[in-house]
Amino acid sequence: MSCQHERRIICAGNRYVPQDDIGPRVFDCLSRRDLPADVCVIDGGLMGLDLLRFVEGARRVVFVDALQGFAPPDLTVVLGHRAALEERPAAYGHDGGLACLLRMLPAVCGEALPEIALVGSEPPAGEDLIEKLADLSLRIAMGAVVQETRS
């Protein structure tokens, strides 16, 4: 179903694969909290391009996913709007997931493109890190200025 909230946190990944479960665990963590009224959290799973419908109509979207190659495990990584959209796979594929979605967003959304941020960490992630990622994604969704962190 579509989402009417202006601020959205979309958690991507596969909860049954340890190397890819950061997004779903952050989703679980946020689902246990009382969230501000204009924020919704979405379990984006492996939906990749199909998550477009949750991006449209939003003012700010924070994606949460397992990241690879940005920083060692245990560190949080935040990419702001421009940097997130610069993550460029060469082509769309079954394995493209979030990277393909980010690459496609400007062409598909045009002027309606919301403010985007990407939050994540290299797996494996302990519970403390999951809590930290949940805090971070919520703060950014609520409008905190994105302080980019990456190695």
Binding site: Q19, D65, L102
Partner: peptide, 15 residues
């Protein structure tokens, strides 16, 4: 389509 296994975002150029 060898099933959905790992779908992490890779740093550009890292592979």
């Amino acid at each position: 389509c060898l099933v959905c296994t790992v779908h992490s975002v890779s740093k550009h150029g890292s592979r």
